[in-house]
Design a protein around this nucleic acid. Structure first.
Lengths: 153, 153
DNA sequence: TAACTTTGACTATCTTTGACAATTAGATTA
DNA sequence: TAATCTAATTGTCAAAGATAGTCAAAGTTA
């Protein structure tokens, strides 16, 4: 069964692709198109289109209100990695790590190969022996070290 | 009567064989099929499909969640890495990790760049939040996962 | 007896939904 | 004109739903 998040993520990315890197969204219309509640759109935007993933999301409420999603282009690799490091903060779940890495790959900030390597180091499997209550922090730490290594190449 | 672990192990291996080396599992569905509790699947995966045994296991929770098991083929050109994985065993100090990586670089099994990346993930600095008494085990685990990722490319 | 297997209650994480709050443009009114 | 109302939008947050993970006790086997 396809996940709604994935469907919506794809729809938004398509809009972005078709519009020179900027999607202009009417939240409820998109929700209707995707057959879901409007807040689901908000959820997708916050988990898949964050600044650490190379997007700027702006919005306005009220009549004529809308959401615009802009893919940040021409951002050099270093500042992208820096954004990622900021986004990680001091804890990250496996899924958050995955989302960040996918964003970085599609932004061209890192290669797919590097993303796979990094993911393999911070997956739940790799960290299985770390106590569950510190695992997210350990993951964040490792990931930041890995990204720093990429920066300092 | 055949042991459950063996039955489930075979089921998963069959799925892998039938799908180009990758099985996609819904844990509770498979448990139902095998007539056991879901956590039994987790047990089989951790005892029979570990990184030391050449499998990459990935998973996601939540709606649409799933587990994927990938069998990594050891081609000849990766025999050095396979031996490395065996050599790591279940614990490695930072120094041992460094030595192994240096050996791999001078043997031409991995690039210097990859060695630096891997080292940045398993350095004491990256693992600072892991309790010292498990750190070597965690390091070994991460390293095996990383090497498998390199092989699986 | 030591190691391995099986079970199940409990936990963690991710997604989906919906009720309610906040904001804004434009229309209406005093 | 200024204040107010109204309709149109997005934002927030917590609950419900859907998976997988953990851990320790009980059972089995070598």
């Amino acid at each position: 069964m396809a996940r709604l998040v994935d469907v919506i993520e794809d729809m938004i990315k398509e809009m972005i692709d078709e519009n020179n890197g900027i999607a202009t969204i009417n939240r409820s219309a998109l929700a209707e198109q995707a057959n879901c509640v409007p807040s689901q759109i908000t959820y997708v935007l916050s988990t898949r289109f964050s600044s650490g993933q190379g997007y700027i999301v702006e919005s306005r409420r009220g009549g004529g209100g809308q959401i615009t999603v802009t893919r940040v282009e021409f951002m050099n690799k270093f500042s992208y990695l820096k954004e990622m490091i900021d986004a990680i903060g001091d804890a990250a779940t496996q899924q958050q790590a995955r989302n960040l890495l996918e964003g970085a790959v599609s932004a061209g900030a890192i290669t797919k190969r590097d993303a796979i390597i990094i993911m393999s180091a911070v997956s739940d499997r790799a960290l299985g022996l770390v106590e569950t209550d510190t695992r997210s922090k350990v993951r964040a730490n490792i990931m930041k070290n890995l990204l720093l290594a990429l920066i300092s190449e």
